[in-house]
Write a protein that binds this DNA or RNA. Sequence first.
DNA 1: CGTCAGGTAGCCA
DNA 2: TGGCTACCTGAC
Length: 267
Amino acid sequence: MELYINKFNLKYTLESGQFFRYAQKGEWYYCHERDKTFKIKQKENTLEFYGTTREHITKLFGLYSEYEKITKTLSKDPILKKAIRQFNGLRVMQRDPWETTINFQCSTASNIKKIQLNMNKLAEHFGKDARFENETAHLFPEPGQINNLEKIKKCSTGFRAKYIHAVNKLVDDNFFEQLKRKNYIEAKQELVKLPGIGSKVADCICLFSLGKTEAFPVDIWIERIMQQNYFDNKKVSHKEIIEFANTKWGKNAGYAQQFLYHWGRNR
DNA sequence: CGTCAGGTAGCCA
DNA sequence: TGGCTACCTGAC
């Protein structure tokens, strides 16, 4: 299947730390998202993919957003202007909230490689098997299915295992549907009540899966980037950074974060 | 072989 | 609110 696209870069979007279950094979990216397995490649303004629908691709890769409007507004900021020029086509994805929650619970005090390992192992141990191109693909387990603490530990999750185990019991798809209907502040408040989920992870869930475009996840990288570029190298609290981003970029803060993060790490 | 990493929770001033 | 520290384990 094909999809005509504009102002989109698959590589930047997929490799910018918002999505983890993918593997590059030649010109194709083999991707897994919840119960979907598909492969996708980009050739200029065309996306070619197999294994899923146009609707899914459009939503997952944030292709419905008013990208030109957002980037134009953000480009008033000279630093973002550079970042946007360098990484034009980078999008904020809209993923499955359940998988995103487990995903970013795994991210605490970790790194991209290890998060990928955790997610792939969780799918192997708890998810259903499917066939894709004559090979076994592991689907991500449904809410409620990650229910064995010892097995969760076998997925190299370490001290995060107990949090994953607890959250698996506390949420379901309906919970996330309710959060989508709430505003950003309320949704975040609900999320940080969950074990193993603090401000940063909650903001990632809000931004990457609940459509809260104003969320501005502050991790150690964003902290450094913001300090260097907007606070004259002075120490600032995460709270101050969030307030600054909110005032400066409002509903576009999430996009600003994604550009700054990618730019700051790949410069 | 030691150090450290996309944070969070718990505890104390 | 602000400042500490422990925490699993693979990767460098």
